[in-house]
Each structure stands twice: as structure tokens, then as C-alpha cells.
Design a protein around this nucleic acid. Sequence first.
RNA 1: GAAUGCGUAGCUCAGCCGGUAGAGCAACGGACUUUUAAUCCGUAGGUCCUGGGUUCGAUUCCCAGCGCAUUCACCA
Length: 494
Amino acid sequence: MSSAADSHEAIRSDKLRAIAALGVDPWGHRVDGLMPIGDVLKLPTDVAEDQRPQVKVAGRIVLRRDSGKVHWIDLWDWTTPLREGDRGKIQVMLGQKQVGEVGWKLAQYLDLGDQVAVEGTFGKTRMGEPTIFAEKVTFLGKSLLPHPDKYSGMQDTEFRLRHRYLDLIYNPETLDRAKKRIQIIRTIRRYLDEQGFLEVETPVLHAIAGGAAARPFATHHNALDIPLFQRIALELPLKRLLVGGMERVYEIGRVFRNEGISPRHNPEFTMMELYQAYGDYRSMMDLTEGLIVDCVKALGGSMVLPYGEHTVDFTPPFQRAKYADLFREYVGVSMEDSDACARVAAQTGYPTAGKHPDVIVQHLFEENVEDKLIGPVFVYDYPATLCPLTKRQWGNEKIAERFELYIRGMELANAYTELNDPVTQEMTFRSQLAGLSADESMAKMDEDFIRALRHGMPPAGGLGIGIDRLIMLLTNTQTIRDVILFPLLRPEKA
RNA sequence: GAAUGCGUAGCUCAGCCGGUAGAGCAACGGACUUUUAAUCCGUAGGUCCUGGGUUCGAUUCCCAGCGCAUUCACCA
């Protein structure tokens, strides 16, 4: 006997043919009048046998017990998380006398992973288990490959990511997170819509990948014979819309950065950016707080959510702290004292020669402050040179009107009073370009954007939120790959 | 990109200080009309990630490669 002839797949294929030989389509067809299994499980079971309600459900066979003239299968559909206590699925009894001749033959060919619909009465067994006593079985689809272990499920990270469809079935957290993600994004849309923002769609393919300092993915348009880049930010097109009089706009969309992969970085991720005419970074703080509080509420109620070994308290108002104050507190010197900063940086081995003082300040901030920011805390008033798209404070050119929202050391939101002065904007673009190495400086100067600003952009506040990281935080997920259904993996070898 | 760890049956995992491998579940055959990770009897299932090296002999030791994970680097 060769192993191939004996394989799970071969055996299941044989069963599939046997099912077809019964005159039953092994790939199923439309079924009407189905009830969600979650709803059936809520029906009362303590009724007399002749009073049992008639039900009809469809789902996947996740467990099977065969005891002679009666088979028991556990059916699962997406309305009930698998493995949650013993109510994660519904038990179905297939009795030889009850399901008819074809139904009984069919029962002999059922495997874990197959999909069936059953009709029957709903009650409980002698042992008190809620059960559908099947009168009719309809075959809906064969699983030609065996499913994961019914008890241990799937543990291997790579296996889970490469078989997300199985992960969704056997690890309830996966489906739960996917649902929560949808709910959070829906909440953001509702919140912004209520505030009068318009959701817009801007191009993914850019001739110039601007709006952030990141390496883009490059592609090529054949008919025009031009290089194109996938967007790395939403900012520049949205601000053009501000110039065009669209006073409150936002976009929730995928951006792409050709950089490393880590528990917090996926090459494509989802960003929300919004721009509000006549606002500033302080109006963005209020809006951000309201938005996140709404998302937390949408998930169920508690304002204190677990994250890893810690908790995060989202009860408003969030703390607000000046960058310079935090800097002095944790670094021990004033960020305006360039010599002192350089000295502290040099002590830790950081090369300071030729670096702009603000770059050194930023380094020290990242090293000494960021991971202390348990938050939620709005850090505001940044050193200006770090923020090329941000308006400077009126009367203090060294300070940029910007904040970042930190929670558990993660940057969750980033907002500015937008720079609407085309002359300053062009200057900061150019000075930034001058500091970039050759491969980083690819076509970042967006002349058309400057031209748009010359036509007059209203003063405005702008906000960006990394949606994936927000969802990580709100769903207690430690890796971005688990809030994205299909994170990038190296392709399997053939 | 670097360091470390991991890769064994469909799944979850043992094991081998070098003598070509085991368990539970799944599968196959049989018994059982109220089971609950059903139980009982029996059977089969493996390129021990890939390629080299050392050795009489490598799944085990060594080297290289591939994949994944963690940490770091990169990353507004």
C-alpha cells in the first residue's frame, strides 16, 4: 500500500465519489431558511419532546462521535466562537431511524471539516446537552484535506498565518479580532461623519511619493511609460482638497512602505488621515480624544482595557504634556541647551558630529522618554526641524505645532497645525531633501503641491492615526500580523 | 541587515550524549441508538526543512541555504 493511495486526501476523495454515487451533489447548493447557530442555542431546551421547535442550521463539522446506529456531530458557524466553554458549537444527533436511508448512508461518509445543513427538532439529550435531533441532512461541501487537531487546534504561528482560513475557524480570537477591527473602523467613520467630515478617495498610485519620510514601492505604468509609486501617506492629496474648499475631509486607506517587517510594521497598513479647515492641533487633540473614547466604548463598555501584562485607562481627559517638559524631566537637561544635549548623547555613544541639534534632541527623546509614556498622553510642541509639514508657532519659529498621542510607548496618532505658507513649505522641503541620501531622496519634491498652496490653503488642523496599531491596542494584540488578516509573508517555495 | 531559538506523521508534541523514530488526536477495519476531547479491539501512516561535510553509520554532530519566531537595527 503506497502512502499516496492511503492519504487523507485520497480517502476523502473516495468518500466524495461515494456521496455523488448516492445522487447527492458533494459540493452542495443554496440553502434557504437557515437559522444562526448562536440563535438556536438561545432557544429553551426544557420543553417536552413533542413541543420541540423545528430548526434548520448549516455549518462545519468540528467534532464527530460515532456510536453505532447513532452519530453525533458538532456543527460550528461564525455566530458562535468555537471552544468557548462547551457552548461553542451545536450538537446534532444523526440517528439511523431518524435521518432516512440516504441520510444515514451520507452520515457514514462525513468527515471533520465537511459542511452540512441539518433540519430537525431542538431539545436536549439525557445528559442535558442542547442538541438538534436531525430529521434531514443536506451535504454542502467536502473538505478534501484534514483539518487541525480537534483539541490542540493550531499553534504554529507560520501555519496559522499561511492558513488564515483555518485560523479563523479554530482560534476564536482571530475571528473576534477581525470583527472588532471592522467595528472600530465603522465607529471612526460614524464619528467623523457626524462631525461633518467627508470621506474621500485619493490615488494610491503617485508620481511622487510624498507626505512622509519612507521608502515607497516602485512600479511602472506601461501605456504612459512612466514610473509610479504606491503612496506612503494620504496627506498631500487631502490638503489639495482643502485648497479646493472641501473643509473637512478624511480618508481611511492602505499605504505602503518598502521597509522592514516587525511586530509593529507590515509593508501595507491602514492609515486614517483627516484635515479640518480653520482648526489647529489643539482642535485635533479634542477630536482624537473623542474618537478613541468612542472606539473604546464601541467595544463593550469598560474604559480600562488590558494590554499585555498591563492595562490602559482610556477615561478622558487624556494627559497633555509638552515635549520640552518631558525632555527636561527624563533627559535631565533643557532641549534648548544644544551643548548639554550633545554631551548627554555622546555619553551613550551616540555620534553627534555634524548632526542638527534637533536631531540629537529627537534621538534623546526616543531613547529616554518614549517608553516611559504609558499614557494615553498627548505630547505636544515639537522641535520645528523635525516637522517639515507643520506650522511653526506664531512668534516662536523653533516650535512646531504638533502632537503625538502615546499609549504604552506606541505612537498612536500624529497631528499638526498644518503648514499653509507655500514659501516656508518649499524651504523646508528643500532643506529636508538636502539632508537625504541618494536612494532616499527619490522625487520627494512635489512642485504641484507647492503650487496648490500658493493658491491659498486655509489654516487647518490635520490628524493621522495608524489604524492597525490602534486596533492592536484596543484588542490586546501584540503583533500587527494578527490585526491584519493577510499580513505579508515570504511566498512558499513550490 | 545582525544575534538567538525553532523546523520530526494531517494537527499538537516527545525523542535520539551518533546505530534510519514515538505518543495523543485525526485516518482505516470492527463493536455499540444519548455520546461530550465518547469508549473498547485491531491496522496503517515519516524525504525527521533542503544540500553538503565528518563517520563503518547522521534525524541526532559540523557547515551552508530556506522558512518562521523573538530581540536589535531600519522605520515621522
